[in-house]
C-alpha cells in the first residue's frame, strides 16, 4: 500500500529501525525475566543477525528521493567475519565454527585478538574504575538506546544506590530501556528524552556530582552544536565526562590499517567536530581535558574507539 510508505531519509530509517528493535526486545522479554539474561540474549541476537528495514524503489536518485520504506523488518544471519578468514587463511576454527582469532587494530597497530574477546567489556570496566568509591550521585548515558551499557555497568557492580539516567532521542529506545529496567526493581533507572542537536540536561537539576558518558552515540551526529561541551559541563556543580566514540579520524587519517574506517566515516557522515569542540573548550578553560587518545581499541572489525575524558561543572 504505497500511501503508507515513508520517504527514505535518516529520520524515517531510524524510526523504523528502532520500532523493529523494540519488537525483537519484546520477543525476548516474553520469556525472560532476568535483566542479565535479557541483555545477553539481545546482544547475541545483534551478533547473529543484522536487522534492517525493507525499502522499495531506488536510492540512487538525488538525496534518495525515489526510495521508500515499508517499515518491515529484514532479519538476515550475519556471515561470520569472512574478512578475517581472508586475512588469516591458516587461522584455526573454534569448535563453534568461527575463526579462533579476529583481526583488530590497537593504537593504530595491526594485531589479533581471540574471536570471542570482543572488547565489549572495555567501556563498562573503564567506567567501573571511574565511578566506584568516588562519590557520584548520578550516572548519565547520552544517546543510551536501550540502556544496555548503563544496565551492564550496574550489573557489573556499579553504584547500587544512585540513579542511572538513560538519555535517548528515540522514543522506542526509551521504551525498550524502561521495559528492561522493570526487570530489576532495585535499579533506580530514569529514562529521559535527549537530543544532541538541542542538548537539555535540566533533568540533572539538584544533583551535585555527575558522571556522564557516551558510547558510539555522538559519532552519529555529523555536526554537534558549538556549545555542546559548555552545556554538558553546566549540568551539575561537578561533572566528569567519558566518551568512547568513533572520532579518531578527526585526529589523524594516516594510519594505513584504518583506511577502511576513514572511508566509512566519510560515507556515513560520522561526526566531524567533537574533537575540535573538546579541545576548544579545554583551551578556553570551560572544561578540563584529562585524556584524549585516538583509536585506543577496535570493536567489530575496523571500528576504532577514541577515548576522551574531561571534568567540569558549575561549582
Amino acid at each position: 500500500m504505497a500511501e503508507t510508505l515513508d520517504v527514505y531519509n535518516e529520520e524515517t530509517l531510524y524510526r523504523h529501525l528502532w520500532a523493529n528493535r523494540l519488537t525483537v526486545l519484546d520477543g525476548i522479554l516474553a520469556s525472560e525475566r532476568n535483566l542479565s539474561r535479557a541483555l545477553a540474549i539481545l546482544d547475541e541476537f545483534a551478533r547473529t543477525y543484522s536487522l534492517s528495514v525493507e525499502g522499495v524503489g531506488s536510492r540512487t536518485g538525488k538525496d534518495g528521493q525515489t526510495a521508500r520504506l515499508t517499515g518491515r523488518a529484514i532479519v538476515q544471519p550475519n556471515v561470520v567475519d569472512p574478512a578475517d578468514r581472508d586475512r588469516f587463511p591458516d587461522c584455526p576454527l573454534l569448535p563453534t565454527g568461527v575463526p579462533a582469532f579476529a583481526y583488530t587494530v590497537e593504537s593504530g597497530n595491526r594485531t589479533i585478538r581471540p574471536f570471542y574477546g570482543t572488547y565489549d567489556d572495555v567501556v563498562v570496566n573503564w567506567l567501573l574504575e571511574a565511578v566506584n568509591d568516588r562519590g557520584y550521585d548520578a550516572i548519565v548515558e547520552l544517546g543510551s538506546g536501550f540502556g544496555q551499557k548503563l544496565f551492564q555497568l550496574y550489573l557489573a557492580g556499579g553504584p547500587g544506590n544512585i540513579p542511572y539516567f538513560g538519555a535517548e532521542l528515540w522514543e522506542e529506545g526509551r521504551r525498550g530501556a524502561e521495559r528492561l529496567a522493570a526487570l530489576e526493581p532495585a535499579l533506580d533507572f530514569r529514562s529521559v528524552a535527549f537530543d544532541f542537536n538541542a542538548p537539555d540536561l535540566s533533568f540533572l537539576a539538584g544533583f551535585r556530582k555527575v558522571l556522564l558518558f557516551t558510547n558510539a552515540a555522538l559519532c552519529n551526529v555529523t555536526t554537534l552544536p558549538g556549545d555542546l561541551m559548555e552545556r554538558l559541563s553546566a549540568a551539575a556543580p561537578q561533572v566528569m565526562g567519558y566518551h568512547f566514540e568513533f572520532v579518531g579520524h578527526q585526529i589523524r587519517r594516516d594510519v594505513p590499517a584504518l583506511a577502511w574506517f576513514y572511508r566509512m566515516a566519510d560515507e556515513r557522515k560520522y561526526n566531524t567536530n567533537f574533537v575540535q569542540l573538546f579541545l576548544d573548550a579545554h583551551r578556553g578553560n570551560r572544561i578540563r581535558a584529562h585524556f584524549l587518545a585516538p583509536d585506543v581499541y577496535d570493536v567489530s572489525s575496523g571500528h576504532p574507539v577514541t577515548v576522551a575524558i574531561w571534568s567540569g561543572g558549575t561549582g
Binding site: 590497537e106 585478538r113 570496566n125
Partner: peptide, 15 residues
C-alpha cells in the same frame, strides 16, 4: 599472547 603471538590488548578488556 594470542595464538602464540605476542600482542597487546586494552587493559580494560578481559579474556
Amino acid at each position: 599472547v594470542v595464538g602464540g603471538h605476542p600482542t597487546i590488548r586494552p587493559s580494560h578488556a578481559s579474556y
